[in-house]
Amino acid sequence: MTAAPGPPRSAAVTVLHTTVSDPLARPLLDELTYEYSTRYEKPVDLSLEYPAAEFAPPRGAFLLLLEDGSPVAGGAYRRHDAHTAELKRIWTHSAHRRRGLARRVLEALEQDAAQRGYRRLYLTTGPRQPEAKGLYLAAGYRPLFDLSAAPETIGPLPFEKHLENPRP
């Protein structure tokens, strides 16, 4: 018995620091919008949630992982408070999942936030996103909720992580 071939892989995955309005980001954000709307059974419009400027330097960042010039994953952060960045929009294109790309996005965002002087990261994920919950736990994020409770009874699931090497 042979395994089905996975998504094509390339050694050339690069990080692009860009903006929410970059046309390269559109396919990922459209798919993310569709996924949220489907999982939560209500329309979602991410463009209305936060102004794009919140994800721009010096207080925020928006990045894409590109493989052979095409976006395969992305994520962002914005200022939550003077010492905390809030992670948002962490997403992997459905054709490229199970390759560790979301973890690479997290690592790039963590490094960028630390370089900008943030000492703590905060995020929430939805109760119908067990993959995200698993990712954050595996990446060392501390749940700020009771892990034994049913996620639907909590609402958004908050996490935090203290950065080890923030800029002085």
Rank of each mutant, 00 (worst) to 15 (best):
F55Y: 11
D81M: 02
P51R: 04
F62M: 07
L46A: 01
R59Y: 12
A52Q: 07
A61F: 05
D45Y: 01
D45I: 10
G75W: 03
R78D: 03
G60S: 07
V72W: 09
D45M: 00
F55C: 11
G75V: 14
L48Q: 15
G74T: 06
L48S: 15
E67V: 02
E49A: 07
D81I: 01
R78F: 01
V72F: 06
G69L: 05
R78P: 03
L48W: 10
Y77D: 11
Y77F: 15
D81N: 05
V44Y: 06
A82G: 03
H80Y: 13
L64M: 06
G60T: 09
P71Y: 01
A82F: 06
G74A: 04
Y50T: 12
A82P: 12
L46V: 10
Y50W: 13
G69W: 06
A56R: 09
F55V: 15
G69Y: 08
R78G: 02
E49W: 09
A82D: 15
R78Q: 14
D81V: 10
P57Q: 01
F62L: 05
Y50H: 13
L66Y: 01
L66R: 14
V72P: 13
L66E: 11
L48P: 09
R79D: 12
P58R: 04
G60R: 15
L64A: 05
A52N: 06
G75T: 05
A82V: 09
L48E: 15
V44R: 11
D68S: 13
P57N: 00
Y50R: 06
G74H: 03
E67A: 06
A52D: 14
R79F: 06
P58D: 03
L65V: 02
F62I: 08
P51G: 00
S70V: 12
